[in-house]
Amino acid sequence: MKAKGKAFKYGDNVDTDVIIPARYLNTPDASELAGHCMEDIDDSFTARVQPGDILVAGRNFGCGSSREHAPLAIKESGIACVIAESFARIFYRNALNIALPILECPAAVRAISAADEVSVDLETGEIVNHTTGQTFRAEPFPPFMMELIAAGGLVAYLKGKKA
């Protein structure tokens, strides 16, 4: 699984209230949620984001509320992967449950600027900043987690196992 796109860069402690504000939680419709993704810290995000783009952030990404809508909104907005220095625990779990690929790589975060052209290879954990020519290595997911992501998330994965 590979992705290539432009980087969107944010700071530390990006919380789920800004990823998807609670005033939009009255819908489970992912495309509706994606239309408001990140709007409280970046009101131009939804207009600029393209399928395949990469979201890059600092420490403790996704802290706060356990709302699953947060990774759902990011995934549906077209973001192919989130790279952060670290993730809040509940967000990390939610992201994998709904098959949003995420990687921890502090070195890459420090070296990627907004709008850089970035690619990720989830199988190897390789992150390339094509704008600067730098390459980084994140810990890749073990095979069973890759299977889970490929299946489309935890529920789909377990259904597939049962069949």
Partner: peptide, 11 residues
């Protein structure tokens, strides 16, 4: 428990 941007209403 939380006081993030926009948590209780307006940004």
């Amino acid at each position: 428990n939380r006081n993030f941007v926009g948590r209780m209403g307006h940004v």
